[in-house]
Design a protein around this nucleic acid. Structure first.
Lengths: 344, 344
DNA sequence: TTGTATGCGTTATCAA
DNA sequence: TTGATAACGCATACAA
């Protein structure tokens, strides 16, 4: 494996010239640069990682702590891990994976051994054991998700409140007067992340602000959980004509089946919106309007913030990623509505 | 951050003594060792990763290339990633994650920059672009999964053939004469890994060896795919009394519903076995007998093999992990059978 | 049993 | 614009 001395020899220059030519940190004559470039090509030279780490201030490695909890939805989780890795590569950074059982110890280990330059914390729980650790670390850290107490931390997350309001507004603007929210199973609200709460509260509050009747149901775990929850939502007494689903893929699919069984065709008898979904709702039947949870949006920001923090101290902050909206025709005015309700 | 000089100074010894005391590569007097230990404690010393990489022959990092393809089942994928990371930590190794778009270039990059000591290749496809790369690499590599041409490679995988035979034997020994296999969707057999083929072939062949009628069905993708496949399997003409399911979780769950809808209670009217499943079938209704796909089994072996390969050249080989079996009462003799059929 | 000295490959400082 | 050289922190061959 060629090293910088080999390149210098072949190019007929000194190693420092090679180093500077490659880093671009000082100007090099065109002639010298091209000689170095050909030598690099010829030898297939890549800087030795250890040497670079030791001499430079950077390891070019980011730690990614991504615990896989029992109630973690694996596909979404994977999407975030991948999005972080992809974003990091754009800055010439690699990702070192820390697992659940290494959550706190692993963070201390890779930081005090100076293995990593920064940390991305995924799947942040309300009361997360990793929070106290990273708060006391001098290593730049960005959380994807918001803990119960974000004091002193840099956090990035989808703006779930805005997403919820967007749901409500979409329904209200289409003329619906009574809307439903199919949420996650109860266990998800009892522990873990706080985004389910943020979404639900904002949904209910904004529904009130828009003068809508709103019903919230959680699917129980088990065979009939979703079906029962859907039946409650569709209870004729409530008169719900639009439902937002903020739960994982398999539950949304089951809910769609139940809507069909209940004789509600979409969007004529029922408007349906898939909220903060990390999966593809275009292949559902029918394809659903969706406010997608785009992993890349949050992760790009998170990595960019870590990179900023590497260059100098960064103020604690919470960066909320604005929601997007992809219409696919699963939301329509309710039956009998002549026109959309005016915005307030 | 304390370095080895600090520890040496506090302990009143030379840095080489500290280094040897920590690595255990030469004997140290009890007195000196304890002085060093307290100094390490007091200073919270951890060896600088870059220094260790540069001076030693080892980086203590393994590359993990784990592409997430469209037809990848994310939960299983995650389980393998985690299992590799956990196994690596036992050898004081960390995992560097290489993503799909970095598949080949990333491998070249991390090896020629000497960032990693070895490579674990996950989710190996029959015709995998990474194969040619790792074959030409001097970096120790172990594949989890078996490519079309495993020449010159070190591979680890569950013994899917043995698992299939175990299914057949379980059914045959219980007295069943006609058995079914619910496989993956067609797309899975058309591209990607070869384990679905290995399982199916062995299942069909061994059924013949045991004198059983065997029916194979693939669920089409789409709303009624699984249901149709199940209906085919349960076609009265075939007289199938036992079904093995070798497909992902959601499909197995839907199949269970369909069995119920068809009026087949488990195990009285139908014996069911979940084969090579990476998920928990104990919470299914009913809980299913399972031949689990234990990620840790394969990944522990894979990591151990890489570690061996680090110490010296290792012969190419295919290491097959024997299947396990967890009975839960979902397999029983067929209705009307007086006793299990004798083994041949 | 312990200490000294060298080298690992790079970056960065200083000098030219 | 370029070159010589001193760190960086550790492991290890060699000396004692």
């Amino acid at each position: 494996m060629a090293n910088i001395h080999d390149v210098a020899r072949v190019a007929g220059v000194s190693i420092s010239t090679v180093s500077y030519a490659l880093s671009g940190k000082r100007s090099i004559s065109e002639k010298t640069r091209s000689r170095i470039d050909s030598a690099v090509q010829e030898l297939g030279y890549l800087p030795n990682a250890a040497g670079r780490m030791l001499a430079g201030a950077r390891t070019h490695i980011l730690a990614l702590t991504a615990p896989l909890r029992a109630d973690t939805y694996a596909p979404a989780h994977m999407a975030f891990v991948l999005a972080v890795a992809t974003a990091a590569r754009r800055f010439d950074y690699d990702i070192l994976l820390l697992t659940e059982d290494e959550a706190t110890l692993g963070l201390q280990r890779v930081t005090s051994s100076r293995l990593v330059d920064g940390i991305i914390v995924l799947d942040v729980a309300i009361d997360d054991e990793r929070i106290d650790v990273v708060r006391n670390l001098s290593t730049p850290t960005v959380l994807v998700g918001i803990p119960g107490d974000p004091t002193g931390l840099i956090c990035v997350d989808l703006d779930f409140e805005a997403a919820a309001r967007l749901c409500v507004d979409t329904f209200a603007d289409a003329g619906h007067r009574a809307v439903g929210l199919l949420g996650h199973p109860p266990a998800v609200y009892e522990r873990g992340s706080n985004f389910p709460h943020r979404f639900r509260s904002a949904f209910m509050e904004h529904a009130q602000e828009r003068g809508l009747e709103a019903t919230f149901e959680m699917p129980r775990t088990g065979p009939q959980g979703v079906e029962d929850a859907v039946d409650e939502l569709l209870n004729p007494a409530a008169g719900v004509t639009a439902v937002a689903m903020h739960c994982e893929e398999s539950l949304q699919i089951r809910a769609l089946s139940r809507f069909a069984e209940a004789g509600r065709s979409i969007p004529d008898d029922l408007s349906v919106l898939s909220a903060c979904s990390s999966f593809d709702t275009s292949s559902f039947s029918p394809p659903l309007d969706v406010i997608p949870l785009v992993a890349a949006d949050s992760c790009d920001s998170a990595v960019a913030l870590v990179m900023q923090a590497l260059d100098g101290p960064l103020e604690p902050r919470i960066e909320l990623v604005p929601p997007r909206f992809t219409p696919r025709g699963s939301v329509a005015p309710p039956r009998g509505a002549n026109r959309p309700a005016p915005a307030p």
